[in-house]
């Protein structure tokens, strides 16, 4: 009957990873650090080294480190970081949540698209800082306008990518679901949403980045705490070192949160068959 498992076919299965020589792995591990270390060295040389820029415009790494230490010791740094992280977390969950609901609806229903999408696209083009005065006017100066602004930032990438992912679901898979007797709901649950997952995760990653951006915009005005507050406090008090502490922390936290999402993405999308870039 059947002579063993066949190996030839339409597409060959993926090859397993090769073992690389030791120095190649070392280079691979160090590669992401090249640019940051280079920038740090350049920064040091430009300030403490050759005094290319005045200290009040670009403080040296040492000055920034000292300020960071002071803020940490006083407990303020923790308070600022906690405030910002809280706002991003809440706003992102809120915005992404609403986006998933609306995006699923618009993705599935052409009628919903015709009703909702044009308005949403118009709103999408309003830049973050333009929202701030309105939100302050309508919602006061506490946490609500800040979290709302972050949610607005998170909403659009998630919404747009989800709708796109749903619409791009392979028609053949939907037909398959129909042949196997799936109801509309069953099709959505078992075929459309899983197929849209890669797009959704892309949207979430971009949305998270936007959340941080919109957070800073919100904290620049009417705040008492937060990393954006550090920026404007440094600006108001002629403390460039405080501004830099704020910027660096934003970079670190932004990268860390993106990294976490990336990890999730890798786990959830292990089944995708993309080309993955050249080695």
């Amino acid at each position: 009957m059947l002579v063993g498992a066949d190996t030839a076919g339409v597409s060959a299965p993926r090859p397993t990873a090769l073992r690389l020589p030791v120095w190649r792995t070392a280079v691979r591990r160090l590669a992401p650090w090249l640019l940051p270390v280079g920038l740090l060295a350049g920064w040091f040389l430009a300030t403490d080294g050759f005094h290319l820029l005045p200290a009040h415009q670009l403080p040296s790494p040492r000055a920034v480190a000292r300020t960071a230490r002071d803020l940490l010791a006083g407990g303020e740094l923790f308070r600022h970081v906690a405030a910002s992280v809280q706002r991003v977390a809440l706003g992102f969950l809120l915005g992404a949540g609403v986006a998933i609901v609306l995006g699923t609806w618009v993705g599935l229903s052409r009628f919903a698209e015709r009703v909702l999408d044009p308005t949403l696209q118009a709103i999408r083009n309003v830049p973050s800082l333009a929202w701030v005065p309105f939100l302050l006017l309508w919602m006061g100066i506490d946490e609500l306008p800040k979290v709302t602004l972050v949610a607005i930032g998170a909403f659009f990438p998630v919404y747009v990518n989800l709708v796109s992912g749903i619409r791009q679901t392979d028609r053949k898979l939907v037909e398959l679901g129909q042949v196997f007797g799936l109801s509309e709901l069953g099709l959505v649950r078992h075929i459309v949403l899983p197929a849209a997952l890669p797009s959704l995760l892309t949207g979430l990653r971009i949305g998270l980045g936007q959340s941080w951006l919109f957070l800073v915009a919100a904290e620049l005005i009417a705040s008492t705490r937060g990393l954006g507050f550090l920026l404007i406090d440094g600006q108001n008090s002629a403390r460039a070192d405080i501004m830099l502490v704020g910027i660096l922390l934003l970079a670190v936290l932004g990268k860390a949160s993106d990294g976490a999402l990336r990890l999730l993405e890798r786990r959830l999308l292990a089944w995708t068959d993309g080309f993955g870039g050249v080695a």
Partner: peptide, 18 residues
């Protein structure tokens, strides 16, 4: 005749196996 492949993902299968 695919008992060994039960935990594989479709991207790992040949056309015939699929």
């Amino acid at each position: 005749q695919l008992t060994e492949a039960r935990d594989k993902l479709p991207k790992e299968l040949s056309g015939g196996m699929a």
